[in-house]
């Protein structure tokens, strides 16, 4: 009865690293999907803008594709694209908030 032991299967630090790896993998997948979505949305917006400006040239054409490609060149530096990086920040922040909220008296 006196032989107490800490269960060794899966140490505490290993669990923390595993949590971090799972979180990182999930964030990377979600970031890629979000990026595809934001770009797709922006392209659609640009196509609609072209069609509104050139009613006679509406629809898919080489000129419209060139316009969209040129306008999309700087999309990576836009606020919307930069805010997508929050995918990597917010979950970690949430974990920190939960740790403090749960373990604070």
């Amino acid at each position: 009865m006196l032989s107490w032991r800490l269960v060794a299967t899966g140490a505490w630090g290993v669990a923390l690293i595993r949590l971090w790896l799972v979180l990182l993998a999930g964030q990377m997948v979600f970031y890629l999907l979000l990026r595809v979505y934001l770009r797709s949305q922006q392209v659609e917006r640009l196509e609609n803008r072209w069609d509104a400006r050139h009613p006679d040239l509406a629809g898919n054409s080489a000129a419209r594709r060139a316009f969209v490609a040129k306008a999309m060149a700087g999309f990576g530096r836009s606020l919307r694209a930069r805010l997508a990086v929050l995918v990597f920040v917010l979950p970690t922040l949430a974990v920190l908030v939960i740790v403090i909220a749960v373990n604070w008296q």
């Binding site: 009865m1 032991r5 800490l6 269960v7 899966g10 505490w12």
Partner: peptide, 11 residues
């Protein structure tokens, strides 16, 4: 609780 959360067991 999972075993990795520092649970204490006897023999």
């Amino acid at each position: 609780a999972a075993d990795s959360s520092r649970v204490v067991e006897n023999a």
